[in-house]
């Protein structure tokens, strides 16, 4: 076969771009296990930095905050999204375009403005500086992602499966739990994973809304690396990377990462 110069150049360019994307991640992982911290190449492998990161009560506290926040925000957003999507995908009603826009608005509005608006409003109604404000902020932030993934799943869902269940005597609720949810399981897993990882890694909203004593991990990491330049920061960053990598694998297995991120706007099945 003739060597195609154009394709060859394209491939080279892509690999260089991939290296650019992966470079900071690889460096962080490398530094986190390097006994000599920032002096590369590493001369050995050490778990010292990880141990330091994972035994620091500040980081462990932050991790607990992020974990709780992520779980609560993910579950509430998905419950809300599931209900909304069932209505949006299956029924047409006046004002639907506006409802769609409103539900997508948290990702259409720049995070700076969205966070500022929540910050000033929650302060005004007396919820500022409480953990509630973080939960609300994160729930709303991940809601559109849940809606898009679940909408994509439900749009591909064959409603005759539900009719068949009703036909053999299942109630509406029973059908939802025995048929609909199990069938869109992969979409649901994708949605839960994506929402959790987005909440877990969120910085812009958390930095505006985090109350004293409830600092999520990314904000804690930011304050740490602002003043400290050592491999403990790398170990912490690597821990976050590893968790994200697990999420990426789950997403890839469930619906594919691309579909998970893009999802679909909840229209109506033609």
């Amino acid at each position: 076969m003739r060597i195609d110069f154009g394709t060859w150049m394209l491939r080279l360019f892509t690999y260089v771009a991939m290296a650019f994307l992966f470079f900071p991640i690889a460096i962080t992982l490398l530094v986190s296990i390097n006994p000599n911290e920032f002096i590369l190449p590493p001369t050995g492998v050490t778990m010292e930095w990880f141990r330091a990161a994972w035994t620091s009560s500040k980081f462990v506290d932050a991790m607990v905050v992020s974990l709780v926040l992520g779980i609560v925000a993910t579950l509430s957003a998905n419950a809300l999204a599931l209900l909304a999507v069932l209505a949006l995908v299956r029924y047409n009603f006046p004002g639907k375009a506006f409802v769609n826009l409103l539900i997508m608005s948290p990702i259409l509005i720049p995070a700076t403005i969205f966070s500022l608006a929540l910050y000033v409003f929650l302060a005004r109604i007396g919820l500022g500086g409480s953990i509630t404000s973080l939960v609300i902020g994160h729930t709303i932030h991940v809601l559109p992602f849940a809606v898009r993934i679940l909408a994509a799943s439900l749009q591909n869902f064959d409603t005759s499966l539900e009719e068949a269940a009703r036909n053999v005597g299942a109630s509406g609720t029973r059908t939802l739990f025995s048929i609909t949810l199990p069938v869109i399981k992969t979409g649901l897993i994708s949605s839960l994973t994506l929402c959790f990882v987005l909440s877990w890694n969120d910085f812009p909203i958390s930095v505006f809304l985090a109350p004293p004593g409830w600092t999520p991990l990314p904000v804690e990491l930011y304050s740490y690396i602002k003043y400290q330049y050592d491999a403990v920061g790398a170990a912490l960053a690597s821990s976050l990377i590893i968790l994200s990598a697990i999420a990426i694998i789950i997403l890839d297995r469930a619906t594919g990462i691309r579909r998970a991120i893009r999802g679909e706007a909840p229209g109506v099945k033609s």
Binding site: D158, S160, V168, P182
Partner: peptide, 28 residues
């Protein structure tokens, strides 16, 4: 529809993909 006791065979069969043949048959 769940209170009618009429059997229905769908054009695309509408078999529940997460259930075995036996589970499909015995769900009702």
């Amino acid at each position: 529809p769940d209170k009618r006791n009429v059997g229905f065979v769908f054009q695309n069969y509408a078999l529940w993909p997460h259930m075995t043949v036996l589970e499909n048959i015995t769900f009702g």
